[in-house]
Amino acid sequence: MDLFDRQLIFVVGKGGVGKTTVACSLALAAGRAGKKVLLCEVDGLSRAAQLLGVDAAEPGRAGRMVDGVSVMGIEGSAALAEYLGMVVPVRRFLQAVTQSELYQYFVAAASGLKELMTIGKIWYEAQRTDERGGGRQWDVVIVDAPATGHGLQYLRMPSAARDAFGAGLVRREAEKVVALLSDPKRTAIHLVTTAEEMPVNETVTMARRVREELRMPLGALFVNRLHTEQFRPADIDALLAAARSSRQRDTKLLLSEVASRAAEESGWTRLNKRYLRELERDVPIPRVELPFVFSEEFGRQQLLELVDQIEAAE
């Protein structure tokens, strides 16, 4: 599977399924493979920087590169201001504009403008050339997109802008962005989900919309937080029976607790399996299965376990 052999990769999925975790793991795996990686965080929470253990730079600026990965926070208003800086080069005027109430109306009214600018900024980074080397600045730009509905809105903006706006600067630029986003050789949209009811339903819809409405190239489906252990009911029953007949209080408790954890894990594994089958049937794209990593606190060490899995899949 080629999971990061693209110029631009979007990681999308329902809230909380592990988009940031997967985007970080992908970035580390690509970095290990010797690539220069830019990881873009769009939702403004700097969780990725935190997970990777680097300081977050100010919005729109690439942070220091560590292990081949540099993190950038992208924020709609900052991207818009940056863009306006190019269109309206006179700083004094620019400030008058962005600080006026009118500007707030403009941005709110042209809803989608911020999203458009965000995607524009991502496009700019993805095709940007390295001033010294002459090659591309980044081998791969990985985008940790906001949760589903909103995430797709970002992806939709360039073609919406191209179709809706009259001839103008935005239209011409939108066309270039659309060309990159819909080119399967250069771009991939990776989906992330867990094998549970709501995320799976949303993923099925999302896959269809990416294909049919957005007409963008789907990459792989990451199924995250999978439970895999399955214990035989007979073993669990035997534990419970032993717990009942044991006369020592500590042993009694231990046996019943081990049994209940075994039943719990088996339950999750069964549930995950059921939804994995649904995904197999309804989202027929290459799949990467990532285990639930148990820990007191999910951090860099847990992340590295997932990186190993991704390298194995790649």
Binding site: A96, V97, S100, F106, F165, G168, L169, V170
Partner: peptide, 21 residues
């Protein structure tokens, strides 16, 4: 309301083709 901002936003609107207001 704001002469400078109004004029500049109008230019922006022309450039972008957005007729938001």
């Amino acid at each position: 309301v704001n002469r400078t901002a109004g004029a500049l936003l109008r230019r922006l609107e022309d450039a972008t083709g957005v007729s938001a207001l």
